[in-house]
Amino acid sequence: MASERVDIYMPKLRGKSVAVVGNATSLVGDTHLVDTLIENNISVAKVFAPEHGFRGDADAGATIDDDIDTKTGLPILSLYGANKKPSKAALNGVDTIVFDIQDVGVRFYTYLSTLHYVMEAAAENDIQVIVLDRPNPNGGYIDGPVLEPSVKSFVGLHPVPLVYGMTIGEYAKMINGEGWLAGGIQANLTVVPIANYARDTAYVLPIKPSPNLPTMNAVYLYPSLALFEGTVVSIGRGTPFPFEIVGHPQYPKQNFSFRPEPSFGARNPKLNGALCFGYDLRNTAATMPTPNATINLEWLLKFYAAAPNKDTFFLERNFFDKLAGNEDLRDQIKSGLNEAAIRQSWQLDLDAFKAVRAKYLIYPPSN
């Protein structure tokens, strides 16, 4: 991990007042980055916490409040909820921001939006940003619709595919280089690269990146199953297997069923208490996707086809569109378009994105 390359980034932090954007994944070996910096006499002024909080123990979508870190006494300022962008007052006295969060390579994983707003605030306040790069477990392929401006939101700010095949450090370079920050400003950005890394090298995350991605199988299935979040179908929140199972009470009875119940990371799960029928996908994506991999639309198409009331299958219309990245996918599904035709509709935009992406790649493939 770049976080372990202390010889590169520690000298840049000496004599600086540092803010850390991090969460439970911000580790240097087994030690949290914040603790490592303090042990090396780096002046850490505060911590900014993204979705799920600094320690990674909050529900998806839950408002994160400002807090004090009990171990260090540092103030923790929320970047999820009302204030998604660091304010000028919050950055007062800060010289450098260190961003170290494990990404999973999917457009609607909100840490990308946190990165965007951190870079934007830093650019506006003449503060350096250092991104400690980490492997992308879904970095070996590119797929899905490219986001259109009409559905831009915190679950998708940039014109990139659903799966974009870049590390978070490469992505930061693209945000800067493509002028995506407000007014086209650019952050004073340094990316600390991962040593001896190839983008299609399998990487097992040492810690779950968020409460509802507890296994590598869930991480690999996340690009496909998260689209169900915009529908009436459950993807297993409120069970031990979020993003590894999928079902609904009105789906034709299968051999597999589950019942969502309130639990850590899902205090009010969709279809709470209802017996859901569907698919057990716990053994379907056990290895890192290859360059020829695609997101799976089959499950989504099957559930829509079996829905007794198709008018209520999609939840609030805009949310599914925000996840999909366009206003077409929902209509394509409703019109009965097959998977091949849906994929073909993405191709020109995917080709254009690949040309943009190529400018910012740091790491080669393994062969």
Rank of each mutant, 00 (worst) to 15 (best):
R5K: 03
L132T: 04
G238W: 01
V219F: 07
G265K: 01
D133Y: 04
P149H: 05
F48P: 04
R357Y: 01
P260D: 01
P223T: 03
H32M: 15
D57N: 14
P291R: 04
D69N: 03
L271A: 08
Q250D: 15
A198F: 14
V151F: 02
K322M: 12
K359Q: 09
V131A: 05
L361P: 06
F228S: 10
T110R: 08
A202T: 12
V47R: 01
Q254L: 03
W180E: 00
A24D: 14
G273K: 02
L79R: 06
E148F: 08
M166E: 01
K71T: 13
P291N: 04
S257G: 10
G73N: 09
A82Q: 15
A286S: 15
N318L: 12
F243T: 08
I185Q: 11
G179N: 09
P209F: 07
L227D: 10
N338Q: 06
N255P: 08
P159Y: 00
P11M: 03
I42C: 01
A226S: 15
K88V: 14
V246S: 02
N268H: 14
F314E: 00
N217C: 15
P214N: 04
V233D: 02
K152G: 12
G139E: 13
D66P: 09
P365S: 13
P289A: 05
A123E: 05
K359L: 04
R259I: 15
R343I: 08
D57A: 09
V219P: 06
F256T: 03
F303C: 04
E178Y: 02
P223S: 02
K310T: 02
M174P: 03
A305G: 02
H32F: 14
Y171N: 02
Y279D: 15
D103I: 09
L147G: 01
N268W: 06
A341E: 07
D59L: 08
A305R: 04
L79S: 10
L323W: 00
G278C: 00
Q254E: 14
S257H: 05
Y164G: 07
T114N: 10
Y80P: 00
I142L: 00
K71I: 13
L350N: 09
F313W: 02
D35R: 11
M10E: 06
F303A: 05
N83G: 05
T70D: 14
H32Y: 11
L361T: 12
L205K: 05
G273N: 04
S3F: 09
M119W: 10
